[in-house]
Amino acid sequence: MSLLTVNQVSHHYYSKKDYTKALENISFTLEKGEFISILGPSGCGKTTLLSIVAGLITPTRGEIKLDGDSDQKAGNKPPMGYMLQQDYLFPWKTIKENVLLGPKINKNQASSLEQRARKILEEVGLPNIGDSYPDELSGGMRQRAALARTLITEPKLLLLDEPFSALDFQTKLRLEDFVSQLLKQYNKAALLVTHDISEAIVMSDRIILLKPRPGEIQEIFRMPGELRELPPFQARQHPSFQEIFDQVWKEMSALETK
């Protein structure tokens, strides 16, 4: 059974006069440990789709199944971690308090949590800053702290809503490598929303290309094995990268001129 099944999901946004189809008949599955990118021009409903998968929006039609069994509403421990464009660390909490937010919300008060927080912060490359406040950290560090906050809840699936787009280019490349390696290490699945073709190619196993208004699946690209093996930074230099890039680029430009 797949980790995540998205079954014929459609979503409409209503206004007084009219309604807009944001998503139309989206179906796909995500396997354990798989990385899928949802790629598309702005306004194709990428973020809406992610919010639906996260259970923050109820879709107009269709259903989301996690791990084959119950609807995601049932679980009190969230099986998913959500990362946004910006870190959204709470500025009045220390980094440690921010990281421990998930367990706190879920009333998990195990004494080992402090240690886990420290260990996770170390893993994301932020040792000894638990007592700092977010505004003392750089953009890349803050995004890592946000990642730590997501990881401490042990999500089976990470939802990434353009988490690298607000960073400077160097930091972005470094963080891509880091996240990709971390996900492989823990064998976690991820769903990334992006409009950056090269980012989608180097991070993913599959790319779902969405067509805008209404958001429909245009095409699904499967990344060649040799690219999937490589960390993102090296994948960008691999000969087959350019080939795939051109292919996706052509499809995507065709959408925009339509």
Partner: peptide
């Protein structure tokens, strides 16, 4: 308040 803070909390099950 920025609704994304709420989104973060809700995704953590708040």
């Amino acid at each position: 308040i920025d609704s994304n803070y709420i989104k973060v909390l809700q995704s953590l099950g708040a």
